[in-house]
Amino acid sequence: MIIIAGHTLVDAADRDANVAAFRGLVTRAREADGCLHFSMTADSVDPGRTNMLEIWRDADALDAWRKRARGPRATKPHHVDVKRYDAADGGPLF
């Protein structure tokens, strides 16, 4: 399992438009083979922060998606902190 998680920072005035610009990408990703979860959301505390989380079945699914993802035109972030994690196991939280 591959997890892509992190956040970006833009001017607070641009954040909601940025999130909306990614709606099509999120929709397409969720329909892609091997996508277990994909979200890009406005942070509930920081008005300039967008949180992102992707979970993919495996590296092949992620690579296939990246070849056709075609991201939208959106405001360039001032800061990006997004990382890839390779998860070997998972289970119920409680």
Rank of each mutant, 00 (worst) to 15 (best):
M1T: 06
M1A: 03
I2G: 06
I3P: 03
H7F: 06
H7T: 02
D11N: 15
A12V: 13
R15Y: 09
R15G: 07
A17H: 06
A20E: 07
A21G: 11
R23H: 02
R23K: 02
L25A: 01
V26Q: 03
V26P: 02
R28M: 12
A29F: 05
A29M: 09
A29Y: 03
D33M: 10
G34D: 15
G34V: 14
L36E: 13
L36C: 06
M40Y: 00
A42L: 10
D43M: 10
D46Q: 15
P47N: 14
P47L: 15
G48E: 05
R49W: 06
R49T: 11
E54S: 02
I55F: 00
W56P: 01
W56C: 03
R57I: 03
R57V: 03
D58I: 03
D58V: 01
D60M: 08
D60S: 11
A61W: 11
A61P: 12
A61K: 09
L62D: 00
L62V: 03
A64H: 15
W65V: 12
R66D: 10
R68L: 05
R70N: 13
P72A: 10
T75G: 06
K76L: 11
P77F: 03
V82D: 00
K83T: 07
R84P: 00
A88L: 12
D89H: 14
G90S: 15
G91A: 15
G91Q: 14
L93V: 09
L93R: 04
